[in-house]
Measured scan of single mutants.
Amino acid sequence: CHSECLGNCSQPDDPTKCVACRNFYLDGRCVETCPPPYYHFQDWRCVNFSFCQDLHHKCKNSRRQGCHQYVIHNNKCIPECPSGYTMNSSNLLCTPCLGPCPKVCHLLEGEKTIDSVTSAQELRGCTVINGSLIINIRGGNNLAAELEANLGLIEEISGYLKIRRSYALVSLSFFRKLRLIRGETLEIGNYSFYALDNQNLRQLWDWSKHNLTITQGKLFFHYNPKLCLSEIHKMEEVSGTKGRQERNDIALKTNGDQASCENELLKFSYIRTSFDKILLRWEPYWPPDFRDLLGFMLFYKEAPYQNVTEFDGQDACGSNSWTVVDIDPPLRSNDPKSQNHPGWLMRGLKPWTQYAIFVKTLVTFSDERRTYGAKSDIIYVQTDATNPSVPLDPISVSNSSSQIILKWKPPSDPNGNITHYLVFWERQAEDSELFELDYCLKGLKLPSRTWSPPFESEDSQKHNQSEYEDSAGECCSCPKTDSQILKELEESSFRKTFEDYLHNVVFVPRKT
């Protein structure tokens, strides 16, 4: 048989008469490798580009789960590009990614509803959504962080984005990388972005840091009482949809009607710091009717980097990364020049730590249904340095008659930039024990000054392991946590139920 035959053949030295091919099969003959313009397919066939392209389009058009959109890589027609490569849609070739590779997620039936953290986790790592997304989240724990972890990498949506009755959302900033909504599939009414009845939605994105392009379709905003109209108009300008909307697409009466839409800028007039305090004062603000001013709200939190936005980490279910302080308005003076500047002394802060701070007014709604208010920009203030805590785990070892090696770990709280350490030492008198000992005694162990690591005695271990207080009263049991108490109650309830079950099964009433 021919060298490319495997198993047997019907005619000697003829690659077209093989029972099976050793390498690849091409047009009725066995070959060692697939010549151009053919590609290896499933490690035994040679196919042309049209064959591989037909497989790709067949799966793409069917949208069946589990099928493969075949691509070409290293002269092979394979189910998908290997790690580190992405497909070129024009020629199906796998090309190296520039940075992290995109991950295209194809949605069944063309859309997916995100109504819980669990459903959001199914899209973790996706960068391109081939379909439409509907966000409908009523509640949950730590929602802002969970949504950002699972949806934060999405850069492109081919269909539309719909935010509907998501009472738990305060902001859409968890879509931190969303840059493009194509609108290839539109919501009824030709809408590519749809926001309806979101009672706590206050911000779409921080438009000073976020760009969003909507290729096709219109915007729809109705019944978002805490979303200011200025935020919607800003989205029109940034996304390129200005002029597409009709009169009733953006409701003037049901958007922002319960919001404090600040239209003035508060400026800080005085800032002073110490290692654990920050004193702030800002310019006074009074609405047209000074009785509408209820006070100020001061927001602050630790910020290692200057990239904080107002609604980071917030949701309507209680999660809030900001510390909020309510401040009463100052006494009002008739003389504008003698107006008191409101302020606040922030206490209990960490030394040498940068804080993000902003302040906003708290006002009631005027009778004319106009909203007044003022808010400052987010500023960054760093507390002063102070003395560091003591170095940890000092170790001293003498390696000769004239040297001592000293080692330690950095302090747990540096409280500033540590530039150097101060080492103090003092000579001590020799131990009298060394002169009084009889060095001729056998088995004498000389006193040693070398360091030995501390260890816990058996008594201390027994005390720590004991669940009861000892007789001397030195140790006591740790208080039980809520989960331990709940577990004990469940076990007790189970024992009672099981005992009742045994009584009912074992003891049967005697027939009379």
Rank of each mutant, 00 (worst) to 15 (best):
K350D: 03
Y305V: 15
I379T: 15
D206S: 07
H106R: 05
T273M: 10
I327Y: 04
T254G: 14
L169T: 08
F175L: 11
I154H: 00
L204G: 03
T254E: 07
K226Y: 11
N307C: 01
K253Y: 09
I134M: 06
N198A: 02
P351S: 09
G313K: 14
Q203H: 03
G256Y: 05
F290V: 01
S132H: 03
A374H: 05
K409W: 14
V324K: 01
K253L: 11
Q199A: 07
L108F: 10
K209F: 09
A149C: 13
I181F: 01
M346S: 03
V238Q: 08
P342N: 06
P225G: 11
S400C: 05
P411F: 02
N224W: 00
F299T: 06
L123P: 01
E231H: 13
Q403R: 13
I134W: 14
N387D: 04
N190S: 10
D384P: 08
C105T: 00
N263T: 08
W207I: 06
K277G: 15
S158P: 00
I163L: 04
L331Y: 05
T353K: 12
P342C: 07
A168Y: 12
T215R: 12
E262W: 04
E122S: 15
I134E: 05
D289K: 03
N224K: 00
I278K: 01
E237D: 15
A149F: 14
S158F: 08
V363I: 15
D312K: 14
L298M: 10
W207D: 05
L201P: 00
D197L: 15
D312L: 05
G256V: 07
N340S: 08
K350G: 03
P304H: 15
A251M: 10
N399S: 12
Y223A: 04
S400Q: 13
I232A: 11
S171M: 04
A120V: 12
V104T: 04
E156T: 08
F175R: 00
W344P: 00
N136T: 03
I378S: 01
H106W: 03
I137A: 11
Q306T: 13
G139Y: 03
N142L: 10
K103H: 03
D292A: 03
R202L: 04
S119W: 03
N248E: 11
D115Q: 08
Y305L: 13
P288A: 10
Q339K: 13
I114A: 02
T118D: 06
R124L: 09
T185K: 13
K337A: 12
C228E: 01
W205L: 03
D257I: 05
P304E: 09
F358K: 09
R124S: 10
D367N: 08
G159R: 02
Y380A: 01
E262C: 08
I214G: 01
I278H: 00
K162I: 05
F311M: 07
V308R: 04
S389N: 11
I157V: 14
T383W: 00
L280H: 00
L392D: 04
W352A: 13
Y167H: 04
S400G: 09
E156Q: 08
G318A: 03
G348W: 04
S366L: 01
W282L: 06
W286G: 12
G125Y: 03
Y167C: 13
G348F: 06
S260L: 11
D377V: 10
T383R: 00
P336K: 05
A120W: 03
T361Q: 14
E283F: 07
N263D: 04
N198H: 00
R179W: 09
Q245Y: 05
L229P: 02
V397F: 14
P410A: 15
S401K: 09
P410T: 15
A195P: 00
L147P: 01
P304L: 14
D249Y: 12
V363L: 07
I214H: 02
H106F: 06
R370A: 14
L133M: 08
C261H: 02
G373P: 06
A303N: 05
E146S: 04
E109T: 15
I157E: 01
L298Y: 00
S116R: 01
G125A: 14
Q203F: 04
Q354L: 14
D292G: 04
A356S: 08
P304G: 03
D312R: 14
T118F: 13
V238A: 07
G159N: 02
Y194S: 09
F193M: 12
G217T: 00
N224V: 01
D206I: 04
K209A: 11
I163P: 00
D393E: 06
W352I: 15
R179Y: 10
E156W: 06
K277T: 09
G295W: 10
E187C: 12
N307K: 03
K234G: 14
L349W: 00
Y191S: 13
D206Q: 07
W352F: 08
E187I: 10
W352H: 14
L362N: 06
E146V: 03
Y300H: 09
L280Y: 00
N248I: 10
A145I: 08
Y160C: 14
K103A: 10
I214E: 00
S116Y: 12
I327K: 01
A374V: 04
L294W: 09
F220D: 02
K277Y: 15
S274C: 09
L133T: 01
A144V: 13
G110R: 10
S192C: 04
S400D: 14
T215I: 13
E146G: 14
A144T: 03
L293D: 03
S274H: 02
A120T: 11
G110D: 10
Y160T: 07
N200M: 09
G152T: 02
R179M: 11
Q121A: 09
I163R: 00
L279M: 11
S274Y: 11
L219W: 08
S321I: 09
N198W: 00
T386G: 04
D289Q: 03
L331A: 14
T241Q: 14
F174L: 07
R247E: 06
Q354K: 03
L294E: 08
N340M: 03
G295Q: 15
V381Y: 02
W344S: 09
C228H: 05
L252H: 10
Q203A: 13
S166H: 02
N399I: 10
H341A: 10
N190G: 13
I395P: 01
L212K: 01
S260I: 12
K177R: 09
V117L: 10
L123R: 01
R247S: 09
R281T: 09
K162Y: 12
P342I: 11
I114S: 01
G189L: 14
K218T: 14
Y372D: 10
H210I: 06
D292V: 03
K234F: 08
D292E: 14
T118R: 09
S274M: 13
R370V: 09
T241N: 11
T215H: 07
T386A: 11
F221L: 13
Q245S: 10
I232F: 01
G313M: 13
I163T: 02
R182F: 04
A374L: 05
